[in-house]
């Protein structure tokens, strides 16, 4: 990578520009799944529908994921200050919260399957599982990336000066969080409230 010793045209870091470019494209990825989900809200083929959601439970795991964004940004801040020790602490906290969220999702899926909502049940079920499942995959990849930052900084591969690396992972992590902000409202809350009325 020639970025380090050459001036860039727009004065931006290649990797940050690349990450933002990638995130722009991710909106079209999740947007398609959300659209399919909205189209199939009522297409439950007689099986369970949105009433199966456990809003209080999902609210808590959503809250955990949201707060992981705080620890993530604090990790980056610590790194920017050159404080790798605090950075690693916040990174672990972020990954931990991500893991809690994922555990919640696994638990939730298990409950739903036991209540009869399998992926083959209906287009509604398929679109719910594949949408939230892909989001879960993104969280999982995020945890892997966070752990790599943790380990690399331990073995000296990430230096205190290289906070762009933490920032990149952070951008990805916040994006995954943003997507969940949308999913929590559009997939869980609004349909549930519409059903309640």
């Amino acid at each position: 990578m020639a970025a380090g010793v050459e001036t860039t045209t727009m004065g931006l870091d290649h990797r940050k520009l690349g990450m933002w470019t990638f995130l722009g494209s991710e909106f079209l990825f999740f947007g398609a799944f959300v659209s399919a989900y909205l189209l199939y809200l009522d297409t439950t083929a007689g099986g369970p529908g949105v009433e199966i959601f456990d809003i209080p439970f999902t609210s808590i795991s959503s809250f955990v994921l949201l707060m992981s964004s705080l620890t993530m940004v604090l990790a980056h801040h610590a790194h920017a200050q050159g404080d790798l020790r605090r950075m690693r602490l916040w990174i672990l906290a972020t990954a931990g919260q991500g893991a809690v969220f994922l555990g919640g999702q696994v638990f939730e899926f298990n409950v739903f399957v036991r209540e009869g909502l399998t992926i083959s049940e209906s287009p509604f079920a398929s679109s719910f599982y594949v949408l939230t499942g892909f989001h879960g995959m993104h969280v999982f990849v995020g945890i892997l990336l966070l752990m790599s930052v943790y380990v690399l900084s331990l073995i000296g591969k990430i230096k205190p000066t290289q906070h762009v690396k933490t920032e990149m992972i952070g951008l990805y992590w916040h994006f995954v969080d943003i997507v969940w902000v949308v999913i929590f409202t559009v997939v869980y809350l609004i349909p549930e409230i519409a059903v309640l009325e």
């Binding site: 799944f33 399919a36 992926i119 083959s120 287009p123």
Partner: peptide, 23 residues
């Protein structure tokens, strides 16, 4: 996304495009 849905329908029993269940 379209291909993942196709794959899910064809291999993993999802119902995205299956008219039988309203897809």
């Amino acid at each position: 996304v379209a291909l993942f849905m196709l794959n899910a329908d064809a291999v993993f029993g999802a119902q995205f495009f299956e008219p039988g269940t309203g897809g």
